[in-house]
């Protein structure tokens, strides 16, 4: 097979790679770019551990070809913290002990961030349904849902206005 040359943006960084035409974005991220924060739990879109955002849309990196990344803007867990400043969700996950083994955590964080960017005041039910594609086997979801709701509450507080605008552009 001939490899395809791809130019894309990952967490705001211009990135070039070559990949096989049938290689998934997840394999490219993990095996070619060393970005192993996105995890493979199933490879079939059923667990959400490889959740990434492509052009503002939450997707499973295992269900997208690397070749499809051409010209897109990709956000992964590795870009979630702004330098040394954690995203509020990351901090709340720590505060609420919303992780045990932690393998599903990157996917949950990426998915929850995508929710809060669309809906800053979700109900518990909305959080649970939005995150239904992210499997966690350790926590029973309780502390994860609490962490997301608590983050939303904090982010709604006016302090938000003083914060610098989100670094990543989100297309809805």
């Amino acid at each position: 097979m001939f490899q395809i040359q791809i130019s894309t943006s990952i967490n705001g960084d211009d990135t070039e790679f070559s990949c096989e035409p049938d290689e998934t974005l997840l394999d490219v991220l993990r095996d070619r770019l060393g970005m192993t924060g996105s995890k493979e739990g199933c490879g079939t879109g059923d667990c959400g551990a490889c959740s990434v955002v492509v052009d503002g849309r939450l997707v499973c990196a295992c269900l997208m070809l690397g070749a499809e990344a051409q010209g897109r803007e990709i956000e992964t867990i590795e870009g979630m913290a702004d330098g040394t400043e954690l995203h509020p969700l990351q901090q709340k996950f720590l505060d609420h002990a919303a992780l045990q083994c932690g393998v599903c955590t990157p996917g949950f964080l990426v998915a929850a961030k995508s929710l809060l960017e669309r809906n800053d005041n979700p109900t518990e039910e909305e959080v649970r349904y939005w995150l239904a594609g992210n499997l966690c086997r350790c926590t029973g979801y309780d502390k994860i849902v609490r962490a997301v709701l608590d983050t939303a509450k904090d982010m709604r507080i006016p302090a938000k206005a003083n914060k610098p605008a989100a670094k990543k552009r989100v297309k809805a």
């Binding site: 590795e78 979630m80 932690g102």
Partner: peptide, 21 residues
């Protein structure tokens, strides 16, 4: 007490190394 876990930061930033990493 409910202290922060020592492996927490690695796990929320994606840098924790699991079996396949």
């Amino acid at each position: 007490t409910r202290t922060p876990r020592p492996d927490g930061l690695d796990k929320i930033t994606g840098r924790a190394q699991f079996g396949a990493d």
